[in-house]
């Protein structure tokens, strides 16, 4: 889709708009003209790009953890902590709920739409992954076997497999046709911490297969020396799609936070949005190195990220109530100031 390649080293904040409450999740519309967000005020927001004109509305009985769009360009699906999926006509002047589905028992943490847009997957605290018919909201298949809450899911563009990652770093590949577990990826357990505070902490926060189908990337946290006090570091893991084995551990060294979400960029690099007690960052790695080649300090801790359809912009949402649009292209020169008239 994108004519030009993203240049992560040129990343800069192009737009930022403030809501009345800390934000949780974000998603671009397929036409790229809007970014949608959810907030701690139980509301959803539609932001027009570049004007920042906002429309907001309330729906779920709880927070919305994830937002996705279907390929019709109008239907948006939100995943609530109230067991529900809600389908929206998101482009209406005042967005309206089209359909509500009680989809999981407990929080729905993540959604993923198939490349053909006909199906989507959901992951929840009932330890299940579910595949849905996007046209009518009917359940097609349930994938069961995770022993902990499922934090993330990803539908492969081949339409045959779905991936899921849970709180314990257990990453699985399932066959869509029969719902069977195909394989597990080895080494994800680094994303789980059990320590002397008596808590279980970690999880696969983001999951995506690289466009060249060589790697499955997962992000989360490690080095959690004080989970209850937010002392941990973000990390991305790369798994070889052929061998199931972990081939890269890409830490955000020296940063305190969690890798909340990831996206493969069209230049072949991986972008991760991190946030935590060390502030917010966009971190960029290439598959051939454990060390990131660029990091960009964000004005505040990030909580979610989405890649624009043009492949050249990232949206992030933040605790400081802002949604920010970052361009991965050179910053245009500042307009010259007019000389003052004497």
């Amino acid at each position: 889709m994108a004519a030009t390649k993203a240049d992560p080293k040129k990343v800069h904040v192009a737009h930022q708009w403030k809501h009345g409450s800390p934000l949780i999740a974000c998603c671009f519309s397929p036409d790229g003209k809007y970014v949608f967000t959810s907030g701690q005020d139980y509301a959803l927001q539609r932001w027009e790009i570049p004007s920042g004109k906002k429309v907001e509305w309330k729906a779920h009985d709880s927070w919305v953890r994830d937002i996705v769009f279907l390929h019709d360009g109008r239907t948006m699906i939100t995943a609530g902590c109230d067991d529900k999926l809600i389908f929206w006509d998101a482009m209406a002047e005042k967005p309206k709920a089209i359909r509500t589905v009680v989809a999981h028992k407990g929080w729905i943490r993540n959604l993923s739409v198939a490349a053909d847009g006909k199906t989507f997957a959901s992951a929840g605290n009932d330890r299940l992954v579910k595949l849905w018919d996007a046209t009518n909201g009917k359940l097609i298949r349930t994938f069961s076997g995770h022993k902990l809450d499922v934090y993330s899911t990803f539908l492969h563009p081949n339409g045959k497999t779905v991936y899921s990652g849970d709180q314990g770093g257990d990453i699985r590949e399932w066959t869509i046709a029969d719902g069977k577990l195909q394989r597990k990826f080895q080494g994800g357990e680094v994303l789980l911490t059990n320590n002397t505070q008596g808590v279980r902490y970690g999880g696969v926060r983001g999951l995506a297969v690289s466009p060249d189908n060589k790697y499955l990337a997962a992000c989360g946290l490690h080095k959690a020396t004080n989970p209850l006090g937010a002392v941990n570091e973000p990390i991305a893991l790369l798994f070889d799609m052929k061998t199931n084995k972990k081939v890269r551990s890409q830490p955000g060294s020296g940063i305190k936070g969690i890798g909340w979400q990831l996206s493969w960029l069209n230049d072949g690099s991986l972008a991760v949005a991190s946030g935590g007690s060390g502030g917010g960052y966009l971190l960029f790695w290439r598959p051939d190195s454990d060390k990131e080649f660029h990091r960009f300090k964000l004005p505040d801790t990030a909580r979610d990220m989405d890649l624009h359809p043009d492949g050249l912009q990232l949206a992030t949402v933040h605790y400081d109530r802002h949604v920010r649009i970052h361009k991965l292209t050179p910053k245009p020169p500042a307009p010259k100031k007019k000389a003052k008239k004497k």
């Binding site: 605290n125 505070q197 008596g198 808590v199 902490y201 989970p227 209850l228 006090g229 937010a230």
Partner: peptide, 17 residues
């Protein structure tokens, strides 16, 4: 019953405990 000192991820930890 421990541990509720949840300065971080209060909701995930309360959900666990």
């Amino acid at each position: 019953h421990s541990n509720y000192d949840t300065h971080n991820e209060n909701f995930n930890f309360h959900l666990e405990q």
